[in-house]
Design a protein around this nucleic acid. Sequence first.
DNA 1: CACTTGGGTCAACGGTGTTGACATAAGCTC
DNA 2: GAGCTTATGTCAACACCGTTGACCCAAGTG
Lengths: 210, 210
Amino acid sequence: MLSEDLIVDTSLRLIELHGAEGLSMRRLGAALGADATAVYRYFANKHQLLLALADELIGRTFAGFEPTGQWQRDLRTLAGLIHGVNLAHPRAAAVVTARVTGRPHELAAVETIIGILRGAGFTPAQAVRHYHCFISLVLAFSALDSAMCSGDKAELAAETATWREVYRELPAGQYPNIAEGADLLVAQMRHSPFEATVELFLSALAARLD
Amino acid sequence: MLSEDLIVDTSLRLIELHGAEGLSMRRLGAALGADATAVYRYFANKHQLLLALADELIGRTFAGFEPTGQWQRDLRTLAGLIHGVNLAHPRAAAVVTARVTGRPHELAAVETIIGILRGAGFTPAQAVRHYHCFISLVLAFSALDSAMCSGDKAELAAETATWREVYRELPAGQYPNIAEGADLLVAQMRHSPFEATVELFLSALAARLD
DNA sequence: CACTTGGGTCAACGGTGTTGACATAAGCTC
DNA sequence: GAGCTTATGTCAACACCGTTGACCCAAGTG
């Protein structure tokens, strides 16, 4: 017997295993030991399935989180958790990102984050505004970085090779600013600017608090 | 006779016309009045074509831009330009976002932005770091927002309806923070937090400059 | 017993990106 | 000009994809 939970778990395992694009209904059916179309008894279409995956991921993200009362630290932790979970499930991340699920785990997440901002001293209006910026920032970067990592290793290596070869050999006359920091640039582009951007964001919020 | 330029232009027109997912090789071929596979004489695969689209978009974005010397204003303008162009071409945006093209227009863009930061007084290392954060922020939000707008109108309306119905009717006992700002939340979620986040980002940069 | 209903299977439709063989026209060398 | 190479477009096919509708059978219910 299949079930929503079983399908969701199997889907997440498949994504983790076969990478971003590895989740197809046929593969899912095979992994479940059933026909591909059996899944349609539980989810109207693939989009609904992805929404369920998204909510499950949100739930897992917030499962091990307890607010400490220090709002900057809490938001930093949450940002890292969300980013991390989404990176582990790139394909589902694309959906968490773009659409609102309206499911229970999502509600709990919204409640938690706005609560942290209210506790920090922001007004309800500020808290809502900053919540929107915060969650969009984190999700947008998650989607960006998981798209970055979803390709094969070979593809990724070719990518950084492009950076190295193209950017390091540019004529300093035409591109003085690039030439000046070419080594820094190549080194910088290898890892995500996520943490740095979150720090900038948090410092901007803190400045708005006084 | 086909040509790279003709293919790129037609592709962009197709995307603008048929929406995000509207660009398939067969449709492209039809729009060109040729067989779908003829495109493969000019681009090794669809990914390469999308990279070319991306570079073309970058070029168009920077075409009408002249730095004023006021770095905050310039970055704000650029952010808006990039965001706007990407919103108009949702599918291509996803690619501009994730991958480095290494093509001429991209190089010019990198040079311009780092130049602005250097002119603002940042060190080469700072300029490179902040460039990376800035461009990632802008591209990540562009991808997010264009994914948001790419669905049908009906789908989008259903989305906001979800927000309205679900979030406004929540029990205040379980979700006090959401209940407190439910109206604000529903109103807020309708438009992108892009401008607000860019402002926060720029203010954080300015604070780092002293 | 008859009958509905939930849940799994099967074949099929129209779509996708991509490949390899084939045809034809252009341009170059002898 | 003849012959050959190279560029360019066409065609059929492959292996996928999400989704639908018909079918079938076991379980539960009147």
